[in-house]
Design a protein around this nucleic acid. Sequence first.
DNA 1: ATTGTTCGTTGACCGCAGGTCAAGAACACG
DNA 2: CGTGTTCTTGACCTGCGGTCAACGAACAAT
Lengths: 236, 236
Amino acid sequence: MEGITSSLAKPTQMRRDAKPRPRSEAKRGRIVEVAIRHFAERGYSAARVEDIAAQLGIAKGSVFQHFKSKDGLFFEAYKKAVLSFPKYMQAPAAVQERGFFEVLRYWLGRTENMVRDNWSSYRIYLVGNYGTDLALRREINRFLVAEDPYGWRDFVSFGVGRGELRPDLDVDMIGSILEWTMDRFQDALLTEELDPGLFRKSGPVPEEKEARIEQFVELLRRAIGSEKVQVTGKKA
Amino acid sequence: MEGITSSLAKPTQMRRDAKPRPRSEAKRGRIVEVAIRHFAERGYSAARVEDIAAQLGIAKGSVFQHFKSKDGLFFEAYKKAVLSFPKYMQAPAAVQERGFFEVLRYWLGRTENMVRDNWSSYRIYLVGNYGTDLALRREINRFLVAEDPYGWRDFVSFGVGRGELRPDLDVDMIGSILEWTMDRFQDALLTEELDPGLFRKSGPVPEEKEARIEQFVELLRRAIGSEKVQVTGKKA
DNA sequence: ATTGTTCGTTGACCGCAGGTCAAGAACACG
DNA sequence: CGTGTTCTTGACCTGCGGTCAACGAACAAT
């Protein structure tokens, strides 16, 4: 907490413009990679900096030289993980042609695969969102607002451009609703500890998941979709 | 799913001793009260058990006797705080008569006052939801699912009974959407650190807040409201 | 009152993990 | 090779969660 906030508040008097020495830059990268694994596997507080260092065969102090604090290291790991996520607008062209809500459906359907392929990144995303201190959480939120790593702004513009979204809502409102519900729905889709009861009781039945996704997309369409195009796919 | 979280997340040791000591019960209560303040003011990790004990004029070890761990103490504090929140169905009768969505609007309009009157409880709710370890978060979630402290089940039943909610959605789906969006909307209404950008840029302009609430309720009505009663108040 | 039992309280103590730092190693460059 | 700069190290410090053996206050039985 102290590390994060102070490092951002203070310009940290340094010579030049934080010149990225090539050698240490590579090391930073390696440290972050290992850190991602550790934070993902054990959570924030249970992950030990010394373990990370040990696994790299370096001294603990070295880690603290590159990242001022455990917070700082985690934040870096979080950023790297989140930036590796696909953006909405990276859906296949064929899907995009079918419209805004089809893109949503596409990504929801793919969540499980994406998580399987990139487990630790999703896990660290979870840890960052629900399992760290509030001071860090604030930094994280700033990052998410500034970077828009999922590219929902572009995505909403896309939807507005196609006339699929309500013109009487401003972009922030639509984006917020989208973020809020998509995040939680994905959480519910794939985590146990954050599952508020939507999927647990009936176990992992694939077709129920399908139905849920269908319901959810339809629900979002009602909420933020323009009225003329209320029904799609079924074409009626 | 299942793969995400099962393998990790140390099984935090915190179980109820289930031993109702008669006269130490009062002391437990006092400890929890002070703990609420400390956790609320400093966050989970920055709060010190020793400070809490010192403020009560007792020894640190005594706290650990009553609550096996810091986790356990926090959890108790969290529960007490959350249980002090009002339930949806505790809205005034006059409001309830006007229907499901009017009750929503009522509570949204009152959030600011509620927080002012009960600052530390709301704050600790935030800390529990976003600022603790994942293992604790899991415990918290279990609690929220089991206790339904806001009484959304009753509330949704109420809405269904009045025919104001879509009959083609099951209760869990409606409840989840409600929980997700209400939580985040309230966060956005009154916290800085979790504000995803909805309210910040224009500062604290009251009428904008009003307009946001209006928009939001309307949006929820579209999403989960039955179609016959799409427009209310305006009566057309 | 006296003794015995139980339970709460205490504060010294431990271990552990984040964080620091001075000294040295490795490197860059003239 | 010399000199200045950067990186690395590991011993060391600190602070905090958690433990524990001993102490003492309440109560029960005699």
